[in-house]
């Protein structure tokens, strides 16, 4: 699974980086930056929580082939 982001949808709420600073950050314009798109099995629940925590639906998890 990898993390995908649509910066065009990002509103800078920051819930992703607040919940999982390993994978997410915001840039100076307040838009999401994926620090690392790979997700280990142990990290998956936390990343899934960050995804459900995005009010703008700007981030999601999908298989490598997607």
């Amino acid at each position: 699974m990898r993390i995908h982001a649509d910066v065009g949808k990002c509103q800078g709420y920051g819930n992703c980086a607040g919940l999982d600073s390993e994978h997410f950050d915001l840039d100076d314009d307040g838009l999401v930056v994926v620090r690392r798109d790979s997700v280990t099995a142990g990290e998956r629940d936390t990343v899934a929580e960050a995804v459900r925590g995005c009010p703008a639906e700007a981030i999601w998890l999908a298989g490598d082939g997607d």
Binding site: G12, Y13, G14, A17, G18, D27, D29
Partner: peptide, 14 residues
């Protein structure tokens, strides 16, 4: 109007 500042403060609070 400064989301980066907000998330930085949030991580500091944590």
């Amino acid at each position: 109007g400064w989301p980066k500042g907000s998330v930085t403060a949030r991580q500091a609070w944590q």
